[in-house]
Amino acid sequence: MMDQRTESCDIIIRMTVRIMMPFIQLFGLYVIVHGHYSPGGGFQGGVILGAAYIMLSIAFGLKDSTRYLSEKANAVMGSIGPMIFVGVAIVCALVGGLFLDYSALDKIIPLGPIEWRSMGIFLVEVGVGLAVMNIMLSLYWDLASNGEMEEGL
């Protein structure tokens, strides 16, 4: 285990990242959730969440960071994101509205069409955030390790 950490054994950097990580992730979630009535949104929040994991892989080394989010989980989450987006759109079309017409979702759970327009854009932004976070992370992983996932920067 020790030889894995030779490139990242500085305790100050590791503790700083450990302390900063939850706050950065909380801020990313805040940006995603408040995206439809303040600046921000799925893309920006997803990039912030991805940057948090990129910081973790730089500080802990690429091998150690995959214990927190494995390559397979990353690929699965990155695929679930677009599926949420397209799934919401297709469900809208199936219950009688147009593609991505969120007010049609009122027929499944009656909240009122105006309320559903706000909820629908929130669901879509969660999907966008998941996709962007995992694509940013795998971009960094593949670029830093030459695509072999053996050793990071």
Binding site: V31, P39, F43, Q44, V47, A51, I54, I58, L143, L153
Partner: peptide
Amino acid sequence: VDVAFTEATVGAGVSTVLFIAA
């Protein structure tokens, strides 16, 4: 503000890291 947010996260944050990795 929305464009500024994107510029700060993508332009200054992630793309700098990707450039250094390259």
